[in-house]
Amino acid sequence: MAEVDPHALSEEDFHAEVHSFQFWLEAVEGYLGGTDFGFDPNLTDEEFSESELNYLVTTLCNYCVAEQAALQASSGMISFAPAPDAAIFLSTQVVDEGRHLEVFVHRLKMLGIEDPWQEITARSNQSLLKFKDRLLEFVDQRDWEAAIFVQNVILEAMEFTVFQAHAATADPITSGILTGVAKDERRHMGFGENDLGRKLKQAPHTRTRLNRITAELNPLVLSTFSEIAEELKIDTEDLGISSNYLATIERLGFST
C-alpha cells in the first residue's frame, strides 16, 4: 500500500484510513507475524507450582469471560454503527476479540485444561459476569453511545491495565500472548476515545450520562479485581492495577 502521512489527511479521510481493513492488516502484520496462537513457537513452558498454575488458570478463564463479552458486544454493534468506516473498524475488532479468546483457550489447553469452556464457566468471576450482562444490555438496546463507551473505553481500559501488569510478571509464553493482545486493546481504546471525543464536542451533556455509567460500572470493575485477588491471595494494590485503571479512565476525561 502507498505510504500515507496521516497528518496530511482531512479529518474525514483520516478516519477512513485508520478504520480500514488495510490499516488493521498492516498493524497486525507487524506483531503477529511468526507467532503461533499469539506467542513465539520456539518458546517452551516453565515448571509451575500447583498454586501458580491455579492462579494462572483462574486468571486466564476470567480473561476469556471478558473476551467473550467483547466478541459478543463488538459483533452486535456492527448493525447499528453510525458510519460505514465505524462498521469496518468494528469488524477488525470482532476478529481481534475472537483471536484473544482463541489464544487464551489455547493457553489453557497447554496448561493441561482438557475442557477449557467448562473451566471458564466454573471459574467465572460474578462481578465480571454482571458487567458483561450490563454491556450486552446496551448492545441489545442499540445504544451506540453507551455501548461504545462501556466496550471500548471501560472494558478495554480494564483489560489493557490488567494485561500490561500481568505481562510484566508472567511466564514468557503468557507474557508474549498478553503483549500482543494489549496492542490490540490500545487500538480499540483509541477508536472509542476518538468516536466519543467527537460526540462530546458536539453534545457536552453526553459526558454527564457517561459519567453516570462510569459510576455504575466502576464498582463492578474494582470488585472484579478484588474478588480475584482475594481468591488468589494476591494484593492488587501491590500491582497497582486498580489505581492504574482509575487513572486511565480519568485521563480519558471521565470522573471516577
Binding site: 466478541l71 452486535g76 476478529v95
Partner: peptide
Amino acid sequence: SGLVNAAPDDSSKMFLATQTLDEA
C-alpha cells in the same frame, strides 16, 4: 456479525468473527 451472537458454540463464534472481517 449478527450470527456471532446466535451461534450455539464458541468455536462457531470464532469462525464467524473471521467471516465478519472477510465481509467487511
